[in-house]
Design a protein around this nucleic acid. Structure first.
Lengths: 333, 333
DNA sequence: TTGAAAGCGCTAACAA
DNA sequence: TTGTTAGCGCTTTCAA
């Protein structure tokens, strides 16, 4: 491996001069500079970033921790895409650690990134408790930004989406369409997104809706199964709200398979505004979640832009499409 | 920041002893060990991975380069999910660099990972030429594995999917269903996947099919538009093959919007076996692409498992569903 | 404008 | 079994 010293020797100068040339400090004579560049080209030298970061005590990496359970959702691509985009926009690189499926593993992933001396870390937590997160934030030498879920402390380290408000928006829309019996398909717990959405459903739904809930795990298949369970249940309903689009899509298939029409017999809505929702038939009414904005805030907070963290949670916007219609007079059962 | 020296002082031993304790060399007296652990706990010491990797000259990171144009495809989640999975399985971490949208940027991303001293690098190239890739592979001190596309050299650094064979499988199936006029929606070039699939289509389609091709860019929307173009074209066809599932799904919507039935009037097929295909109506006939296997081979090659690189490309398997039916007697126009 | 030397935090001979 | 010492490849004072 060719080091800076090799370049220096080859150019007939000292290590420090090479370093200066590379770091653009304009204190080097042009002719020497040229010599150094020539030597660099000749030797094929690549600066060692580990050494560089160790010496400067700073790095240009931003870490992201996500539990791989999230990988399949439409969330994931959008999240990573935007994370990479905003990192690069601020001359940083995204580095990525799998939080796997337990609090320990999530904490481990964060720890790895801390020890890699990332400039900052974004965590999309799934298992780690508030208390643990708070501890991590406070002990970390670099900014650790908690995404998606609301923390009760350290708002400066927290960019969250107000999923409760999102749930309300969706429920209000369904109610405004005349639906009074609304079923809910939940995402896999623990999940702050699901928890808040479910709470909104519960608060807005008619009091006797307790039986109108089925457990999903965010996947299309679970939405399919959950919908079957609900259809076969004793309680009737005219609308079905799923905690994400994937499950809503699975649910629509289940309804169709049972000969029910969407939205004439049953209306269906989801969350997240997955692209496919537009192309599905019927096209899916959903809530567009401001992922891009969330990531942007997090990254800019890390790179220390003079930017205010949003005081309140970000809220999504309703996307009205065809899968929700007015309540039919008679429900399916 | 608390360093190893701090721990050593706190425990009343030397730095090397602390190091030994940490690295599990069982040459340290139990009592001393205990002392060190106590000091570590007290000080809250976290080893600096940069320093460690600089000193040991090795790292446990595996890099992945993807162009962000790929982020939206169903490919992406699967790719990253499996990459993370197999990395962790072999006690490595995935680190991720955006190839953005030019050869220069891809090469830059690879360079970054090289300079971060990754143990190995996986590249899903989009823009970089064979010659450039070859150069990179040969010059890199660590294994650089080229994914997806076939290289003419260095099969030991190349895990590819035989997309031409995949295209043939799909075309053979369509032909076996009696289709003779088969249209094709292409992915965005440059792309080895599209190139090979398109070639297979061209070789298998009837010679007068030249007009039956429309340009897409992998997105659902482009599939939608491309299908409209084809429908409005002068040439009739009974089947439509799209270079990926997303475009096939967009195309199906276009057909429906024009009052055409799938598969009765027109059959549609795609590639990649995106999950949603199963839930769409009609469910989508597609080719399952062995992404997981590809990544596994790449990772195991990097971590130096006694494993043979597959001699030939991996091939996908046909997934027959509802979007393809027998050729109808009369096409749409 | 340049070079020498110390130091970033760690590992790994070598000696003791 | 432990401590001393010399690196890993880079940056950055401090002198020259």
């Amino acid at each position: 491996m060719v080091t800076m010293l090799d370049v220096a020797r080859c150019a007939g100068v000292s290590k420090s001069t090479v370093s200066r040339v590379l770091n653009g400090k304009n204190v080097v004579r042009e002719e020497v500079k040229a010599l150094v560049y020539k030597a660099i080209a000749e030797t094929g030298y690549r600066p060692n970033l580990l050494a560089q970061q160790l010496a400067t005590q700073k790095s240009s990496m931003i870490g992201l921790v996500i539990t791989n359970e999230v990988y399949n959702g439409p969330f994931f691509s959008t999240l990573v895409y935007n994370a990479a985009k905003f990192c690069e926009q601020h001359d940083h690189r995204l580095i990525f650690a799998d939080g796997k499926h337990s609090a320990d593993e999530e904490i481990n992933a964060i720890d790895f990134l801390v020890r890699m001396k990332c400039a900052g870390i974004m965590v999309y937590p799934r298992h780690t408790s508030q208390a643990q997160l708070e501890k991590i934030i406070n002990e970390s030498p670099v900014p650790v930004m908690i995404l998606n879920q609301q923390l009760t402390v350290r708002p400066d380290r927290n960019i969250f989406i107000d999923h409760y408000r999102g749930g309300e928006i969706m429920m209000d829309y369904l109610l405004s369409q005349g639906h009074s019996r609304i079923a809910y398909i939940s995402g896999k717990m623990p999940s702050p997104s699901n928890q808040a959405r479910q709470q909104a459903w519960q608060d807005k739904a008619s009091p006797d809706s307790a039986a109108l809930i089925a457990q999903g795990d965010w996947s299309m298949e679970s939405g399919y199964q959950a919908a079957l369970t609900l259809i076969d249940g004793a309680e009737s309903f005219t609308a079905l709200l799923a905690a994400n689009d994937d499950m809503a899509l699975g649910a629509i298939k289940a309804l169709k398979d049972r000969g029910l029409r969407v939205p004439q017999d049953i209306s269906v809505a989801g969350f997240d505004n997955a692209k496919i929702g537009h192309y599905f038939s019927p096209s899916l009414t959903t809530l567009d979640t401001p992922i891009e904005q969330m990531i942007q805030c997090a990254v800019e907070q890390i790179v220390n832009l003079p930017l205010d963290t949003p005081e309140h949670g970000l809220t999504g916007t309703l996307v009205v499409r065809d899968s929700v219609g007015p309540a039919s007079v008679s429900g399916p059962n």
